[in-house]
Design a protein around this nucleic acid. Structure first.
Length: 769
DNA sequence: TAGGGAATATTTTTT
DNA sequence: ATATTCCCTA
């Protein structure tokens, strides 16, 4: 990790590499591979493209290849570059390589594109106009900064929101387009063509803050490689072997980065699956995979098609779906597995019924001895998760949300990190701005604005400006005192940073600033959790050498903590599921508009539809044994009921591999006639007399009382039939937990919650406990 | 300056 | 419907 940059070190001849192991008999790991996998491992020299379908052992081939290269002594660990897209994937790869070699492997260049970009950039920061301790901004900081840039240009931020500009800049960066080239690029339709100049201004601001955003990690590398041939040459010589996972997800910037680095040795091996390209929206170019053979002459293409994961029915379903896409490289997955169950496709009335169905299925499987860890619910979008969470809570079914909001994105963590940044990096205005009045210390927006004005006028950092400001008469006495106190504190922290070990320093700053006290005094129900998270953050710091290393980790790697190790059902998005596998996969919400997602279709046309289909393909191929797919006839969106029609993707699944098990009554007795006929009319809500009433169900029905749903008794839940709660009744609330009713006034309850204090609640938000 | 209340957007996916 | 952000008043 801490090797210093030294050009001469790159030139060591491979003769220094020990060849002892090469003469040994065939390593045992090769025997475990099939022919194609083995070919992918042993073809170490020259460009190789491995087209690997889902479940064909692609990660195994890639990790074995890496281990093989090291074992044969073809390169030393420091001479291999292995890039992945996620931190998880790189952790896994490292672990598996070490398992194969049966020893720890250090100094490999193994990590995400962004982490590797950051590593290179830190060594040459000055070539990009930065210093080595530059800050990596996350999306949130980025948007706040862009907002300032927009306002500085006297553009109405309301008409031209910073997030739109962030998206535009992001797209430029994905394509490797710097602010200069952006001008000639016609995509600059932000604020009447001011996009490119705002982009330039933003880059200037970043430089003056000694900061970069995610895209810059690669873009700056590209610029350095372009302007400093010696630096590029050194890396080209260094990386004797390059391995790339999930190549179909590479954007243009990443592609250019790889192409430059691979130019000396051409020993590049990319593994990918064009059918699993699901990140087009953030700049991934399937085209990269298609042109590999052109870019690297004499490239060898190896196909991995034997699937070790799923049953034939599942593979048939996946194939049936994906063949509807045009322009594939084309692979045919096959398996030796036994036939297994057919896919269950179930139509339900609404989202609630869907959650109920999934819950029942899970409980049934569990009672047959299946582990919850082996079940997953894959949704298209996070908002779909809520219904399942609610259902699982009432059932008492343990679950974990994978992905959700990441640890680092939580407010308390961002605040704490901002404190550390403010101390460690004097020019980090964004960090200062974030914490200057958190907790409240009487430094309000008037004061901050004054700081900004002075900083801009004299080209100072915010802290420098503040230091000047307290010397003047500009602020009122009260504000001046407050600001001066803050500056004194900040100074003190800077001193402590050099004296204390970083963990103690962190504790000290959080306490001394009053930040922990702020949460301790906070009565809200999630305050204790925030304190927990802060503790966790500080504890996590222990694993790092110093504060700087920790800050790097936090911006690039920090993920949400493992949500427990127990036996739990998994809940995640389809995107989040890539690379994972489960015995049982639930695929809810296969309706037009939800999946394929309407917004996605609106933005991207037929390309987007194909990407949605690939997403479906990813979902289906996660399953080893069984799939339960469902769609609802109507769903509550915002506060309105919306009818929906089954996803066109359902029609694309081969009939022989499917079994329909829709809810009784849903098709008015015609449910054996199926989904292949015109489904629009079947789901036209106007045909369903109960619709109007259902619409009321979550609105006024509870108060008007006495509604009887003819023939639909099963959907009337306990809450309504019970009418009102009595004083003293135990109740449960989604957010506040358990409590008892203090008073009742129509549908309004006053509830004393065990943890969250006393609240006034509408009765429909609690349920009997 | 702080705090409450109104107005506003949110719901695609993320390194 | 809910969460955040913004604006106004005390």
């Amino acid at each position: 990790m801490s090797e210093s940059f030294d050009l001469s070190a790159f030139d060591e001849s491979p003769g220094a590499v020990p060849h002892v192991e090469a003469s040994r008999p065939e390593p045992p790991y090769l025997a475990e591979l099939n022919g194609a996998q083995r070919e992918a491992v042993e073809a170490t020299e020259g460009p190789v493209l491995v087209l690997a379908g889902a479940g064909t052992g692609k990660t195994r081939a890639l990790t074995t290849r890496l281990a093989h290269i090291l074992r044969l002594g073809l390169a030393r660990p420091g001479e291999v570059l292995a890039v992945t897209f996620t931190n998880k994937a790189s952790r896994e790869m490292k672990g598996r390589v070490e398992d194969l070699l049966q020893r720890p492997v250090e100094s490999l260049w193994l990590g995400t594109f962004h982490a590797m970009g950051a590593r290179i950039l830190r060594r040459h920061a000055e070539l990009a106009g930065l210093t080595a301790n530059f800050t990596i901004l996350d999306t949130d900081d980025q948007i706040r900064l862009l907002k300032q840039v927009i306002e500085a240009a006297r553009i109405d931020e309301k008409k031209w929101p910073a997030r739109n500009l962030a998206a535009l800049v992001g797209r430029w960066k994905d394509r490797g387009v710097g602010p200069r080239q952006a001008g000639s690029d016609n995509a600059g339709d932000f604020a009447f063509g001011k996009g490119a100049s705002l982009y330039a201004a933003y880059q200037e601001r970043l430089k003056s803050l000694n900061a970069v955003d995610f895209g810059d990690l690669l873009l700056h590398c590209l610029a350095i490689f372009g302007n400093h041939a010696d630096v590029l040459a050194a890396y080209q010589r260094r990386f004797r072997y390059i391995l790339v996972d999930e190549y179909q997800d590479a954007n243009v910037a990443q592609y250019l980065w790889l192409r430059l680095l691979a130019r000396a040795h051409h020993n590049i091996c990319c593994v990918g699956d064009d059918d699993q390209s699901i990140y087009g929206w953030r700049g991934a170019e399937v085209g990269n995979i298609l042109r590999f053979e052109k870019d690297f002459e004499g490239a060898r293409v190896i196909r991995l098609e034997q699937n070790y994961r799923s049953t034939p029915h599942i593979l048939a379903a996946a194939a049936g779906l994906i063949t509807n896409n045009a322009g594939r490289l084309g692979k045919t997955l096959w398996t030796e597995a036994l036939e297994g169950e057919r896919l269950q496709v179930r139509g339900v009335w609404d989202g609630e019924a869907e959650a109920r169905f999934v819950g029942e299925e899970i409980e049934a499987l569990r009672s047959q001895g299946h582990s919850l860890n082996e079940m997953v619910i894959l949704v298209r979008a996070v908002f779909q998760m809520r219904e399942f969470e609610e259902r699982f809570l009432t059932l008492g079914l343990p679950y974990r949300v994978v992905g959700g909001l990441r640890f680092y994105e939580r407010r308390e963590i961002r605040d704490a990190v901002a404190y550390f940044r403010a101390v460690a990096q004097p020019a980090d205005d964004l960090a200062i701005e974030r914490i200057v009045n958190v907790p409240r210390r009487g430094i309000g927006s008037t004061t901050v604005q004054a700081m900004h004005r002075l900083a801009r006028a004299r080209d100072l950092s915010l802290v420098q400006a503040a230091e000047e400001l307290v010397m003047t008469e500009e602020l009122r006495a009260q504000a001046r005192r407050a600001l001066s106190n803050f500056l004194t504190r900040l100074d003190r922290w800077r001193v402590e940073k050099t004296r204390l070990p970083h963990v103690e320093f962190a504790e000290f700053v959080l306490d001394d600033s009053g930040y922990t006290a702020m949460w301790r005094n906070d009565k809200s129900p999630d305050a204790p959790g925030k304190l927990e998270n802060l503790k966790e953050l500080v504890a996590a710091m222990d694993e790092f050498e110093n504060l700087e290393e920790f800050l790097e980790h936090v911006s690039l790697v920090m993920e949400n903590e493992d949500s427990g190790t127990g036996d739990k059902v998994n809940l995640m998005t389809l995107h989040g599921a890539k690379g994972l596998e489960f015995d049982t996969v639930f695929l809810p919400g296969w309706e037009e508009g939800v999946f394929p997602n309407q917004r996605s279709l609106d933005e991207g046309g037929s390309n987007a539809l194909e990407e949605e289909r690939r997403l479906g393909h990813v979902g289906l191929t996660r399953a080893r044994r069984r799939i339960r797919l469902s769609f609802a006839a109507s769903r509550r969106v915002y506060n309105q009921w919306q009818s929906s029609i089954p996803s066109r993707f359902i029609d694309e699944l081969p009939k022989d591999s499917i079994e329909y098990t829709s809810e009784p009554g849903l098709y008015e007795g015609r449910r054996t006639r199926t989904l292949q006929e015109d489904h629009v009319s079947r789901f036209d809500v106007s045909e369903r007399p109960s619709t109007g009433r259902r619409r009321n169900r979550h609105g006024r029905a509870a108060t008007s009382g006495g509604l009887v749903l003819e023939g639909r008794a099963e959907v009337v839940d306990a809450r309504e039939s019970a009418g009102v709660f009595r004083v003293g009744a135990r109740v449960f609330h989604q957010k506040f937990g358990y409590g008892h009713v203090l008073s009742v006034d129509g549908n309004r309850l006053q509830v004393a919650f065990d943890k969250a204090g006393t609240k006034r609640i509408i009765d429909s938000f609690v349920e009997a406990a």
